[in-house]
Design a protein around this nucleic acid. Sequence first.
DNA 1: TCTGGCACTCACCCGAGCAGAGTGCCAGGA
DNA 2: TCCTGGCACTCTGCTCGGGTGAGTGCCAGA
Lengths: 338, 338
Amino acid sequence: MLSERRLQVLRAIVQDYVGTEEPVGSKALTERHSLGVSPATVRNDMAALEEEGFIAQPHTSAGRIPTDKGYRLFVDKLAGVKPMTAPERRAIQNFLEGAVDLDDVVARTVRLLAQLTRQVAVVQYPSLTRSTVRHVELLKLAPARLMLVLITDTGRVEQRMVDCPAPFGEMSLADLRARLNSRVAGRRFTDVPPLVEDLPEAFEAEDRGTVSTVLSTLLETLVEENEERLMIGGTSNLTRFGHDFPLVIRPVLEALEEQVVLLKLLGEAKDAGVTVRIGHENAHEGLNSTSVVSVGYGSGGEAVAKLGVVGPTRMDYPGTMGAVRAVARYVGQILAES
Amino acid sequence: MLSERRLQVLRAIVQDYVGTEEPVGSKALTERHSLGVSPATVRNDMAALEEEGFIAQPHTSAGRIPTDKGYRLFVDKLAGVKPMTAPERRAIQNFLEGAVDLDDVVARTVRLLAQLTRQVAVVQYPSLTRSTVRHVELLKLAPARLMLVLITDTGRVEQRMVDCPAPFGEMSLADLRARLNSRVAGRRFTDVPPLVEDLPEAFEAEDRGTVSTVLSTLLETLVEENEERLMIGGTSNLTRFGHDFPLVIRPVLEALEEQVVLLKLLGEAKDAGVTVRIGHENAHEGLNSTSVVSVGYGSGGEAVAKLGVVGPTRMDYPGTMGAVRAVARYVGQILAES
DNA sequence: TCTGGCACTCACCCGAGCAGAGTGCCAGGA
DNA sequence: TCCTGGCACTCTGCTCGGGTGAGTGCCAGA
């Protein structure tokens, strides 16, 4: 077990390294932090910390830098989440309240996160599967062609073309629309299938084919999880990675282009509380020199999607976690209001 | 006026520099291209070309590289557009045909463009202002709250909340929906305003306020040009910029994050034919070391939006122009079909 | 007008030498 | 037992100088 002072040394190393981006030596440490001991003592502590794998030397006769394991300990034990100040919170709220629709909410959230954390922001659109249906609309585009529009409680709109096996009358259409909505409006997506199962039986034989087609298109849309979209921003912050950024930036940019990778990344976040994945803890290789700070957000008490930031492992964890948490909270509020 | 041979020398310089990314000297030129003259002659030609500002030396005793002006001449006079091969065209078509909705079409287009050109792709969503209305839908969310959904011929869906001054009956709603659609369906956005002007008069006094509110929301949506969205992709190709990419990449990334900048950039493209803006021809400072190749695309004969790529001035212009043109053509087809 | 030759100019590539920061270890002291 | 000051050592980063080579400009001759 590490003594209290050694933990303090680790904390100081992390803080200094995050600030200066340079390996930190024993002398500099004692000068900047009042640890109450001499550099020599700190050196011994450092040797111990290195032995345990929390810090490392880029080369002999250089200062130490934290390892992924060191950051992990720092995040788990040595640092809390730094709350936003009141003015910051107000600014967040004001900025988000100006949004006019869902796209705008997401876009503003991305901008905001990127600006606050000076890192790459990733925001997932509120997920369909956990949302509830606000309304289903059916439009006739041609005698045997319908457009199905699904509106969710989070304001998201999904549309699908439906080619009917037979022409479909206006009356039947209005009937179907009404029946459908009375059954599914306000329901969670996952609850919908059993509720509409017997719907075709209520229609004339000639219309049943069309009704079934519409229903199956609707159900498809509901379960289509891979359709989950997301928005990213602040990529220019990647240039802040450090002096070796040219080497690191390409794999990161490539990873950020893969929606699948990002969705998996966010998916790994716990539903509650801020999740931090450091360096090699990220499954994707290109992100091995980055940390991901993510959190779920939702319109009710429940998380409907995730958001987060991607930055260098050498990041201000308390501040980033605070910003991410605060933004998630306010986005949730905005979604609940609309 | 430059002699024919000098133009050939310029062309050779551009081609070699694009290939090797290194200043090209007189000897190497004569070796790789059969110009039929000696290096000494080429040197004289080079001196003349430099005099005119088409090429430049990074430093004395180095080879020459094309200037923006040199690329301009190359694009305008010395190189055509390289058409896609038949297999490439088939691949494009196949890839785009798999799209399920508008978002998917745009997303696929971006991926495709980025892959074909190995550069950053930018695709503007089909613009509202030039599109036509396919359908307007009104949904009642609360006694005095409606949702207005606008569906365009390109498959785009816009939604707006409408807070009514007074509760609005189901009958009136159906009536308004029907009247509205019979007047505007199939019309171009710009033609809509005069067509609905007198609509409130057809309603009872108590409903007129609501009808007016709905109409003004609709018209707002139609003219809201700044709402134009776009999608970008292939940013990891920025790492291909050359050895000095660390310096250039930040302003470019920053520019790419500014939707406004990009929209203006695409907006400058001619409606017909491929437009190329080289280096300092781009108004935005961050893009002074990039070239933008853009083109309009549309579902009918008319352009409804633009797409293009952003890459280093040192790019394969004929190939890029060919790819951009081909993709635009096929996207147009896909949009026309759906 | 083109060509071969020639002198010249720089960027680039080592290798050596120096300074500085940082370390590990050890003996002495609280 | 733990901390401290001192000391020798290591290794990177920087600078300086010379050598190399690609490329140029100019000139006289075909």
